[in-house]
Design a protein around this nucleic acid. Structure first.
Lengths: 209, 209
DNA sequence: CAAGCGTGTAGGAATATCCCTACACTGAAA
DNA sequence: TTTCAGTGTAGGGATATTCCTACACGCTTG
């Protein structure tokens, strides 16, 4: 029996997944988390076999994977994401995720991946696995977006959501000066000159996904 | 019996939703589409009561809603989205969607929304509906723009172009403090909370004209 | 292994911006 | 006619942000 935690902030998605798992004999949802913190809290209380993690939830970035990997060395983390940005996939795996698949896969594939990962295996979407290998070779023409570090990307998202430098500093528990530095660096990398451009750049990127 | 088409490019999401609907007596999934085109093709073949549409799928933007509205006047479209950007919601509804809810709602809410919309009603997430009232009410009549004084409008345009308060003060040969006052007033009038919202508001207005 | 680049982190000083308040002027309402 | 709301203008003080600089760490790369 594979007991899992659903870590996804979309209740409808969780609801659907739970229903999906009722069709199986061997997979059961032990708990659900809507934020990274909630997930960490839950893990202290209950014992499960696998975390099914949506990266886009609040407090659910790459860092969370690293934390999980540190705190629970043997706990497999399967990332379930909407994005198939190679960058994100690659970073997730480096951070210690046992698998990665996008939500456009068949439900059967998800079940397969869960079983494989729960048994200590790894699962990566074959289509993207191939690209990953390919990409690492000719990482020449990276889009500006891909030049950003994880932290910078995070700051970008928070800025684009309308948060101030101070608010972000507080939220991430770092100095506002630090946030400002990150901001300056991502301005340089993205060749932006002001906040208006940042918002428009972000929205434009967002549409591409 | 409410027969629906699931239009979402995420197979896992569709799989989950389908399972969810098996719990109900009255909702049945007649078909699934992964792209806008696929949806349009399917609609020519089969007769259904409602389209459950994920805006983020390929070929699944606001335009698609307009098309559906033109081709099938009475077919209700319920938008299921991850984003709760006011703009997107507002535009969807203007384009003719019968309802809008985000994926972080309860599954029960989704069922409720489907039933309501299938019966000719409308459904909008209560949290966001409230915010929308201002926007839609005012934009129907006065287009918030018109509440702004000439000077405020000018400042808005300059801010949206990426100029700083100081730059604007210099350009208009008035104190930066004055510019700041104008800015504060237009923020209040437009019910904006930060620069990001200003940019998005301005761009949205721009599209309307 | 040494050197160097990228990254995450800040401090101090300089600016920029906001917040609250104020005042004069204009046109509309009472 | 008086009153009042809306507007364009700022000042002073409080905050926020930037700019420049720095440093430690980890990961390449010669």
């Amino acid at each position: 029996m594979i007991s899992i935690i659903l870590a996804d902030d979309h209740a409808i998605m969780r609801g659907g997944l739970k229903q999906l798992f009722t069709l199986t004999e061997d997979i059961v949802v032990a708990a659900e988390a809507q934020t990274g913190q909630e997930l960490l809290d839950l893990l202290q209380e209950i014992d499960i076999k696998l975390v099914l993690l949506d990266l886009t939830m609040p407090g659910g970035g790459i860092d969370l994977i690293s934390q999980l990997r540190t705190l629970y060395v043997d706990l497999p983390v399967l990332v379930l994401s909407m994005h198939n940005e190679l960058q994100t996939i690659s970073r997730s795996l480096k951070a210690g995720a046992s698998g990665y698949l996008t939500k456009d896969n068949d439900p059967e594939t998800l079940l397969l991946a869960i079983r494989k990962v729960a048994n200590g295996g790894r699962y990566i979407d074959p289509k993207t696995a191939e690209k990953l290998v390919f990409e690492s070779d000719n990482s020449q023409q990276k889009s500006l977006y891909e030049k950003l570090s994880v932290r910078e990307m995070q700051i970008l998202q928070l800025l684009a959501s309308g948060k101030s430098v101070n608010e972000i500093g507080h939220e991430l528990a770092i100095s506002n000066k630090t946030v400002s530095t990150h901001k300056a660096r991502l301005f340089e990398k993205l060749e932006l000159n002001n906040n208006a451009e940042l918002i428009r750049y972000y929205d434009a990127q967002d549409l591409k996904q």
